[in-house]
Design a protein around this nucleic acid. Structure first.
Lengths: 187, 187
DNA sequence: GTAGTATGAATGAAGG
DNA sequence: CCTTCATTCATACTAC
């Protein structure tokens, strides 16, 4: 996935101190309202019409555009999910507790497609079946490191893609030269 | 009036043990491993699974979370790029001939980019491309705001809509509790 | 004690 | 929806 050509600002190649501040930042009232909608109401999937309406009201508290509202919801949803995903293997105790189904707080029902693994499944007519369990499709643990020693440096293939290895085992390993960056301690 | 008080601590309102290290810092072994992955292996795009794996192994060398690994890679990538970008603009002294142009294939001149820089795929103007958002909506389509006043918290007016019929008007009534988030969220 | 730097963390914005 | 980029904030550390 080399889509590095994303520059966001039409820089073209010559960086030009884009002095103006072009990034929207929610004012406290706006943030409060948005959070209120998201958390208190569990309102997470605004339709375009609703986005416009929200935006319209938020304009009273500062400059804002529809896309800001749209992105705000998208980002919050994405990051909430990311959080949960990251922390779902916390060293809780010792026994594994696969207790899915109780995460109804942060429901997510809809996903278009494009998922390799299994995500949520919803009925054909629209009934959302909150069945988001991740089976054990991902092997046990990807042996990124051959072993747990001081020396994990082994040899391995080069999965430099970093993004393609999804639905399988993306085994990585590295062979570190021991005379590298550890001592210099500078970046 | 830009960056107003912006806080990033997601403590939830309860600041914990201030003073001590709230911020993760990689231990030397951790740093060595991370750098080894990044520089020696050119491993710059870890997937979430790989992040977990890396984190799991780095835990042997000190407290660390997935989030830390994620940010570490993100930051390193961003700053490497930033450095290059700065050097590209520095007064190197003389002529920096960046002659890249004319590789175009005689513009077809058919479709003009009608992007004004504001339009994204979300349909700011009313048209959306994906996001059909219809069947999920855990909450019904209620009025989002009671009215176009300036405060929907408690401020209530007669819903003299007049003709809020159907079609293009999905409003959600937000009965927010006094539980405001962004207000006192700061620490 | 202030200024500068390095870096962890957060978030808006896009692309796919 | 997922991933990534760019920018910014906050803080630890260093130097003056």
């Amino acid at each position: 996935m080399e889509q590095q050509t994303q520059q966001q600002i039409e820089d073209g190649g010559n960086n030009q101190a884009a002095g103006t501040n072009n990034r929207w930042a929610p004012t406290p009232p706006q943030l409060r309202i948005l959070k209120g909608l998201y958390y208190d109401k569990g309102f997470k999937y605004p339709t375009p019409e609703q986005i416009q309406e929200i935006c319209l009201h938020l304009k009273q508290y500062g400059q804002i555009e529809d896309k800001n509202v749209f992105f705000w919801f998208q980002n919050l949803k994405a990051r909430e999910r990311q959080k949960l995903k990251e922390f779902r293997n916390v060293p809780v105790g010792g026994s594994l507790d696969l207790n899915f189904g109780s995460t109804s707080s942060t429901d997510d029902g809809r996903s278009i497609d494009l998922n390799f693994g299994s995500r949520v499944g919803y009925g054909a007519d629209g009934s959302i079946m909150e069945q988001r369990g991740e089976y054990h499709q991902e092997i046990e643990t990807l042996p990124l490191f051959p072993m747990h020693g001081e020396d994990f440096f082994g040899n391995m293939k080069t999965t430099s893609e970093g993004g393609s290895g999804y639905g399988g085992d993306s085994r990585i390993s590295l062979e570190l030269s021991l005379n590298s960056y550890g001592d210099a301690d500078m970046v």
